[in-house]
Computed example of a mutant assay.
Amino acid sequence: MNARPAPASTRHEGRVLDRAVIGARRFFVGISASRVITCGAGTWLVAAFFAATGIYGLERGGHMPVAIETVRDAADSVANFAGFRIANVNLSGQNHVTPGEILATAGVKPNSTLVFLDAEAARERLEQLAWIKRATVQKLYPDRLDIQIVEREGYALWQKDGKINVIARDGTIIAPYSDDARYIRLPIVVGEGAQKHVGDIVEALSLVPGVRDQVRAAIRVADRRWTLKMRNGIDVRLPERDIGDALQELAVLDRDKQLLTRDITIIDLRLPDRVSVRLSDAAYEARQVELKAKAKTAKKEGNT
Score class of each variant (00 low, 15 high):
Ala82Asp: 09
Tyr141Ser: 10
Glu101Arg: 09
Leu260Val: 06
Arg216His: 08
Cys39Asp: 15
Gly199Gln: 12
Gln138Cys: 05
Tyr56Val: 07
Pro272Thr: 09
Ile201Val: 07
Arg212Gln: 08
Ser206Asn: 07
Asp170Glu: 11
Ala20Ser: 12
Thr43Met: 11
Tyr141Lys: 05
Asp170Leu: 06
Val215Glu: 09
Val190Met: 02
Leu117Arg: 06
Ile266Met: 08
Gly302Lys: 11
Ala298Ile: 13
Phe50Glu: 12
Asn2Gln: 06
Ile264Thr: 05
Val211Phe: 00
Gln248Tyr: 14
Ala106Cys: 04
Arg144Met: 14
Ala3Ile: 14
Val221Gln: 00
Cys39Ser: 14
Arg19Gln: 10
Ile132Cys: 02
Ala204Asn: 02
Gly83Val: 03
Thr70Tyr: 12
Gln248Cys: 12
Arg212Pro: 00
Leu259Pro: 05
Ala104Tyr: 03
Gly100Ala: 10
Ile55Gly: 11
Lys133Pro: 00
Thr105Val: 08
Asp200Glu: 03
Leu279Ser: 01
Arg185Pro: 00
Lys292Thr: 11
Leu247Asn: 03
Glu301Trp: 06
Phe50Tyr: 15
Trp131Ser: 08
Asp18Gln: 09
Glu120Asp: 12
Asn95Phe: 01
Val115His: 08
Thr113Val: 03
Arg26His: 10
Asp273Thr: 09
Val221Asn: 00
Ser92Gln: 14
Leu259Lys: 09
Ala130Gln: 06
Glu59Val: 10
Glu13Asn: 15
Ala47Ile: 07
Met64Cys: 12
Asp223Glu: 11
Arg182Thr: 12
Ser77His: 14
Phe84Lys: 00
Ala181Gln: 09
Gly244Asp: 02
Leu17Glu: 12
Gly193Val: 04
Asp256Ile: 05
Arg125Tyr: 01
Ala293Pro: 04
Pro99Ala: 06
Asp179Asn: 14
Ser92Asn: 15
Gly93His: 04
Ala168Cys: 04
Asp256Gln: 11
Thr70His: 13
Ala51Arg: 02
Pro65Asp: 07
His197Arg: 14
Ile68Glu: 14
Thr53Gly: 15
Gln138His: 06
Ala293Trp: 07
Lys133Tyr: 04
Met230Trp: 02
Val21Cys: 09
Leu291Lys: 11
Gly57Ala: 07
Asn111Phe: 08
Lys300Gly: 15
Leu140Ser: 09
Gln128Asp: 08
Arg72Met: 05
Val221Arg: 01
Ile174Lys: 05
Trp158Tyr: 01
Asp161Trp: 04
Ala135Arg: 01
Asp256Asn: 09
Thr70Phe: 10
Asn111Ile: 10
Arg278Cys: 07
Ala82Asn: 05
Arg134Pro: 00
Gly210Glu: 10
Leu228Cys: 03
Lys160Glu: 13
Val252Met: 11
Thr53Trp: 13
Ile164Tyr: 00
Asp200Ile: 00
Ile174Leu: 15
Val115Leu: 15
Leu91Ser: 04
Glu203Asp: 10
Trp158Phe: 00
Ala33Asn: 14
Met230Pro: 01
Pro142Ile: 05
Ala82Tyr: 10
Ala41Leu: 12
Met230Thr: 02
His63Arg: 14
Glu151Gly: 05
Ala218Gly: 08
Ala175Arg: 01
Glu124Tyr: 03
Ala47Trp: 09
Asn303Ala: 14
Ala41Thr: 12
